[in-house]
Amino acid sequence: MTKITATDCVRDGFSPAIQYTPGENELWAPAGKDERTVILVRNDSGTDCGVTVEAGDGLRKSIGPFHGKVANGQEVAMVLDSMRFKKLEGEQKGGFVLRLCDGENPESPFSGTAAGVKFAVVRT
């Protein structure tokens, strides 16, 4: 599982440049405090892709996972609800688990080049 590099931003000052991590089939994104984590997804893979965020083990886990489509050439931002998506126990504790998949069907694998989908985490 690939760990996405996080950029910690500071208030009233300059922060380091955002670093993007090439995609893999499964990724782990470090969570911040509450809803202060933004995950950026840039799709330059040549085809549309899907991103599924697994449900965590917090109070809102029963809502289930999130699946969204990122069109080729598009960049999107996700602000994730920690109580729904953050893993609080186990091997992935303290983060979010994301999977690349088909844009229309989260159960189907991504057919494009995973490394063409880039991820970044911004925490405030």
Results as ranks from 00 to 15, higher is better:
residue 1 M to V: 09
residue 2 T to G: 12
residue 2 T to C: 11
residue 4 I to C: 07
residue 5 T to R: 09
residue 6 A to H: 04
residue 8 D to T: 09
residue 11 R to M: 15
residue 12 D to A: 13
residue 13 G to T: 01
residue 17 A to N: 14
residue 20 Y to D: 08
residue 26 E to D: 09
residue 26 E to Y: 05
residue 26 E to F: 07
residue 27 L to H: 01
residue 29 A to N: 03
residue 29 A to K: 02
residue 30 P to W: 02
residue 30 P to C: 03
residue 31 A to M: 05
residue 31 A to T: 03
residue 32 G to H: 01
residue 35 E to M: 14
residue 35 E to Y: 14
residue 39 I to Y: 00
residue 42 R to K: 14
residue 49 C to S: 12
residue 52 T to W: 02
residue 52 T to P: 03
residue 52 T to R: 11
residue 53 V to I: 10
residue 53 V to C: 05
residue 54 E to G: 07
residue 54 E to A: 14
residue 55 A to V: 03
residue 58 G to F: 06
residue 59 L to V: 12
residue 59 L to H: 14
residue 61 K to A: 14
residue 62 S to P: 00
residue 66 F to E: 13
residue 67 H to P: 03
residue 68 G to N: 10
residue 69 K to G: 06
residue 70 V to R: 09
residue 71 A to S: 15
residue 72 N to R: 11
residue 76 V to H: 11
residue 78 M to G: 13
residue 78 M to W: 15
residue 79 V to D: 15
residue 80 L to K: 03
residue 83 M to N: 10
residue 84 R to N: 09
residue 84 R to K: 11
residue 84 R to S: 06
residue 88 L to V: 00
residue 89 E to A: 09
residue 90 G to D: 07
residue 91 E to N: 12
residue 96 F to I: 03
residue 98 L to T: 08
residue 99 R to G: 04
residue 101 C to P: 09
residue 102 D to V: 01
residue 104 E to P: 06
residue 105 N to Y: 01
residue 105 N to H: 05
residue 106 P to M: 10
residue 106 P to H: 08
residue 106 P to E: 13
residue 112 G to I: 00
residue 113 T to A: 12
residue 115 A to P: 01
residue 115 A to D: 08
residue 116 G to D: 12
residue 116 G to I: 00
residue 116 G to S: 10
residue 116 G to K: 09
residue 117 V to Q: 13
residue 120 A to E: 00
residue 121 V to A: 08
residue 122 V to F: 01
residue 123 R to M: 05
residue 123 R to K: 07
residue 124 T to F: 14
